[in-house]
Amino acid sequence: MLKENKAFIKDKKWFSIVHFYFKYATTSYFFSPIKCFIGFFVILLVLNMWLITHSVDYFVVPSCVCVGMIRNTTQLFFLQLKQYRESCLHARIKYIKKTLAPYIGFMLSNLLINIIIILLTLGNAFIYKSQRDLLGNINWFYFIFGILLLWLLLISMAYSLYIYSRNLLASYCISITFYIFAVYYLGCAYPYYVIKEYAFIDNAMYFFPPKYIVNVVQASYVNATDLYFVFYKSNKSISVDYGMGHNIWYPILISIGFILLLSFLTILKWKINNIKAQSNFININSIKNIQDKYQKKIAQCLTIDEVNIIHNNFKENFENKTSK
């Protein structure tokens, strides 16, 4: 049995474990037609349909980039974690139970997938002249920085949802809800300036952590570092006011706060779970040792009184161990 466990990973080094899970996660994603369809094709289909029907749109491209990341880093990434737990793969590889290496491998795989969807989305968008004309106006520093923070936030949300979850199916439904909120209320299904007209929806979205950094990505795409942008459509002036003090660093700092908080809570829970697992493992071994000693002593007994004395001692020790 031990040889079969070691067959999964020949080298026990941390990097080898990360590489194994990176390869496992990446191949399982790209060999799944469903994941590729909803993770890539649907996003690109929405993008092309919108750009074909609207000659100029300032926000659909960054919105599609963010929605694609949310799809791949909450719903599909959480689904992958769910399948990992249900497959009990970690239980078949004995020496990785106490390391974060598998989760680092999953993260790196997800990062690669997101880089691909971002490049495909931008490459597809710049086929259209209306989007190529915007190239010179993009604030690339805030755009790339915002995308990186969004990925870190989504990863921390997915892991916290996963590690605190007792019902994986219910948590998976929550991850789908995250995606639906992003599509409909962050500027993909409907333009963001339309969402802003409904104050109750816009105010409610402040409770949705990705909103802050998604707004940064959208604003940086039109170089609106003051979070205020005006454009003309059908000879009508349309203003987009993201609010938040008209300072792009406010939503950035809020997002960093969310990342640190969720990461801390996730690692804390992971450590608590490991301590409990280690305690249970020691307790089981202690009980097994008591049972072995009990059987040996019973075999050496010559009278019924000796058996009763040993039995009572065993019962007392067993109760003490199991009560800890």
Rank of each mutant, 00 (worst) to 15 (best):
N5P: 02
K10Q: 14
K13M: 05
F15A: 13
F15W: 15
T27V: 13
F31R: 14
P33D: 07
I43W: 01
L47Q: 02
N48D: 10
I52P: 01
P62E: 01
C66K: 05
N72P: 03
F77N: 03
F77I: 00
E86F: 06
A91Y: 12
A91F: 08
I93M: 09
K94M: 12
T99E: 08
T99K: 10
A101W: 00
P102Q: 03
I104E: 00
L108G: 05
I117Q: 00
T121I: 01
N124M: 09
Y128W: 11
D133I: 12
L134W: 00
L135V: 09
N137Q: 13
I138K: 06
I144L: 09
L149E: 09
W151S: 11
A158L: 00
S160N: 12
I163S: 00
Y164S: 11
L168A: 04
L169N: 15
I176S: 06
V183Y: 03
L186H: 00
K196Q: 13
Y198N: 11
A199I: 10
F200C: 08
I201G: 04
D202K: 12
Y206L: 10
F207Y: 15
P210V: 01
V216M: 08
A219C: 07
N223S: 13
T225W: 03
S237G: 05
S239A: 15
V240D: 05
D241P: 03
N247L: 14
I248N: 04
W249T: 09
S255M: 02
L260T: 10
L261V: 15
L262T: 06
L268C: 10
L268N: 13
W270R: 04
K271F: 12
I272A: 07
A277I: 08
A277V: 07
Q278F: 07
F281S: 15
I282T: 14
N283S: 11
S286K: 08
I290E: 12
D292A: 14
K293F: 13
Y294C: 01
A299K: 15
Q300I: 06
T303C: 03
I304F: 15
V307M: 13
N313D: 11
N313R: 06
